[in-house]
Design a protein around this nucleic acid. Structure first.
Ligand SMILES: [Mg+2]
Length: 452
DNA sequence: TGTTGTTTAGTGAAAA
DNA sequence: TTTTCACTAAACAACA
């Protein structure tokens, strides 16, 4: 059966919510972050329906960006002046789409207030990074604000869903069916650390991580010089990274720093352009990472925007085969070809890959600015009916970024035509059993975002 | 001045 | 029935 082409939605409203559309725009961007204009462009480029009534839906979209915690505003770097900030996805928002499909959302993504405050405080520092980052040992008065704020650490610990690696794991577990974990020992190449984590660790290194309180994130590797922990080039970042550092010893923070702290710290470093030379970042093995849900691992790809100067190749953002094989967020199982996993570039090695019939190459503007990551060279997968464990190719011997992204559209049901009206039922699934390539992900997000 | 971002208010549909 | 979610409208401020 011929596969639909990219704009097969035509004037019909695509079955994706604004949240989904925005997430797609962010996902498909190689930097994993977009300006508002980028998001507009992505949507109008790929969904003709949104080429009209722009004021209406763009207003709604802006509302969504501000209102939903899953979208995080990243201030522009000094070397990238322009209007508006960048928008990215909250790390744990990766799991917000049910079964990795943009067609569904689990539930509203909400960051606990204390965590949100802490994150915003960290990000706020980006706006004035030199104030502290340039000062080798600046007083903690500025950044320490978050740490000393009683509203932050204790409450964050007690919140229902504290945004920590641990909590992510816990929250994942209750959603996703248990998938056998692959022993970290089987990870090739980087000792015990998945590639994504290697990046993570490298970043941590540059951010003077790992973290002050060694009880928080266990750095079991003897390869990590102690000096890293104590001779941080950015000591003033510590309060951002460890807002809980004042917790009584009887309440050891589980797996801190949380991802949002990585976010903030990474963004801060990027914004300040203070990345120190990195020749030989030691391989760190945060043992806690082994318990990190793959969701979180996957979400680290969002740090890519901040790692341009890191000594890592793009593949570093891909999960290793083992690390992603046990996605607790079930990235492998999606009813849609437009899966989060695919957007993230996870290569599925589905046993019976259906042959890709027709596909349309991305237009130029898509291949660069809006570059999709489609490593599914065999066109397979989309066998989303079954909960097959995902197998991510080892990036070592494959060239994930080389194959040009291809988009094909799946047949869509007819929907009515007025932006703003939602003729379909949010819970109707878009037609399944259609072969949709990764590129098309742009096209296959759903309106029925039910939220995390 | 147009764009970007935040916030409040309200509606309708679906889910709990 | 109540709650949640997606959407729309609008007012407003800040910014390039
Ligand atoms: Mg937001």
């Amino acid at each position: 059966m011929p596969r639909p082409c990219r704009e097969s939605y035509g004037d019909q409203k695509p079955p994706y919510s604004y949240i989904s559309l925005t997430a797609m725009a962010i996902f498909q961007n190689h930097e994993k972050m977009c300006t508002l204009a980028d998001i507009y462009k992505f949507i109008t480029d790929n969904f003709p329906y949104y080429r009209k009534n722009t004021q209406r839906w763009q207003n709604s979209l802006r509302h969504n960006l501000s209102f939903n915690d899953c979208f995080i505003k990243i201030p522009r770097r000094p070397d990238r002046p322009g209007k508006g900030a960048y928008w990215t996805l909250h790390p744990s928002a990766m799991g917000m789409f049910e079964n990795g499909s943009f067609l569904r959302r689990r539930k509203r993504f909400k960051i606990p207030k204390p965590e949100k405050d802490a994150m915003e405080a960290g990000l706020a520092q980006i706006n004035n990074p030199l104030r502290c980052l340039d000062v080798p040992r600046c007083p903690s008065e500025t950044l320490l604000g978050a740490a000393t704020n009683p509203m932050v650490s204790p409450l964050a610990q007690q919140s229902k869903h504290p945004f920590t690696v641990e909590s992510l794991a816990a929250s994942d577990a209750k959603f996703a069916p248990a998938v056998p974990q692959v022993a970290p020992m089987s990870l090739p190449g980087l000792g015990l650390m998945p590639r994504g984590m290697h990046h993570h660790a490298s970043l941590a290194h540059r951010l003077s991580l790992p973290y002050p309180h060694s009880d928080a994130l266990s750095l079991s590797s003897p390869t990590l010089p102690n000096s890293l922990a104590h001779n941080s080039p950015y000591p003033s970042l510590a309060p951002i990274l460890h807002p809980h550092h004042q917790l009584p010893p009887t309440l050891p923070p589980p797996f801190t720093p949380s991802l949002h702290q990585f976010y903030a710290a990474a963004a801060a470093v990027a914004a300040a352009s203070l990345v120190p030379p990195v020749s030989s970042a030691p391989v760190v093995r945060p043992t806690a990472m082994h318990h990190m849900p793959n969701l979180a691992l996957a979400s680290l790809s969002v740090l890519a925007p901040f790692s341009a100067s890191l000594p890592l190749r793009p593949q570093a953002f891909q999960p290793s085969r083992t690390s992603m094989a046990s996605s607790s967020f079930n990235l492998n199982t999606t009813s849609s070809n437009y899966s989060v996993a695919r957007l993230l570039g996870y290569k599925s090695k589905s046993p019976s890959p259906p042959p890709r019939s027709t596909s349309t190459p991305l237009p130029d503007h898509m291949s660069d600015h809006h570059r999709l990551i489609d490593y599914d060279s065999d066109g397979g997968e989309d066998n989303d009916e079954e909960d097959m464990p995902i197998h991510v190719a080892d990036t070592e011997d494959e060239a994930p970024l080389s194959p040009p992204p291809r988009l094909t559209l799946e047949p869509t049901k007819a929907v009515e035509v007025t932006p703003g009206k939602r003729p379909y039922s949010p819970h109707e699934d878009s037609p399944e059993n259609h072969q949709v390539s990764s590129e098309e992900l742009l096209l296959r997000t759903s309106p029925s975002v039910r939220s995390i």
